[in-house]
Simulated scan of single mutants.
Amino acid sequence: MAFVVLLVVAVAVVVLVVRATAAAGGALRPPRPAQRPRPPRDSRPMAPDDDPEFLRELGRRVRRDDGSPA
């Protein structure tokens, strides 16, 4: 029986603490800091097949008779 009373008292204390915190305008967790803006991305190609220099080199390799790399 004492365990049940202790459990009820513990639940009541938790509920009262949560309500008091909410009434005071506080939050249970501190607010997250503002995120810094991301730097702008480079305008470079994202994949090799988007790179004009890579495509030129690939064209040179395809046109070669022996197929060896440049």
Rank of each mutant, 00 (worst) to 15 (best):
V9W: 05
P40R: 13
L28Q: 05
R63E: 13
S68I: 11
D50F: 05
D51C: 07
R61Q: 13
A27Y: 05
P39W: 04
E53W: 00
Q35S: 13
F54K: 00
R36I: 00
V11M: 11
A22Y: 09
R38H: 12
L6K: 07
R56C: 04
P31T: 00
R63M: 08
V17H: 06
A24G: 13
R29G: 05
P48I: 07
S68Y: 10
A22C: 01
A24H: 06
A23H: 12
V11P: 00
R36M: 05
A70R: 09
V62H: 06
P31F: 01
M46K: 12
F3Q: 12
P37A: 14
V14H: 12
M46C: 04
F3L: 12
L58M: 14
R41F: 02
R63G: 05
R19L: 13
V11E: 09
L16F: 06
S68M: 13
A10Q: 08
R64Q: 09
R63H: 06
L55S: 04
R32F: 04
L6W: 09
R60E: 14
P45W: 04
L55F: 01
P52Q: 01
L55D: 02
V62Q: 02
P40N: 01
P31N: 03
S43G: 12
A20L: 15
L6S: 07
L16G: 10
R32W: 03
P48Y: 03
M1D: 13
R32Q: 09
G26I: 00
R64V: 07
L58S: 08
F3Y: 10
A34H: 03
L58D: 07
D65T: 14
V4K: 13
V11G: 11
S68N: 10
P33C: 00
G67I: 03
F3W: 05
A22V: 04
R64T: 12
V9L: 15
A47V: 14
A2M: 14
A24E: 12
D49P: 00
R44C: 09
R32Y: 05
D65W: 07
L58H: 08
A2D: 13
D50M: 07
V5Q: 13
R63T: 13
R36Q: 14
A2R: 15
R61C: 11
A70M: 06
R36Y: 01
R61G: 11
V4Y: 05
P40Y: 02
V18S: 03
R41K: 12
R64C: 02
V17C: 06
S68T: 13
G67M: 02
P69D: 15
S43T: 13
L58Y: 11
A70N: 10
D65Y: 02
P37K: 12
G59E: 15
V18E: 11
A27I: 00
P39V: 03
V18F: 05
E57Y: 02
P48T: 03
A10F: 15
F54H: 10
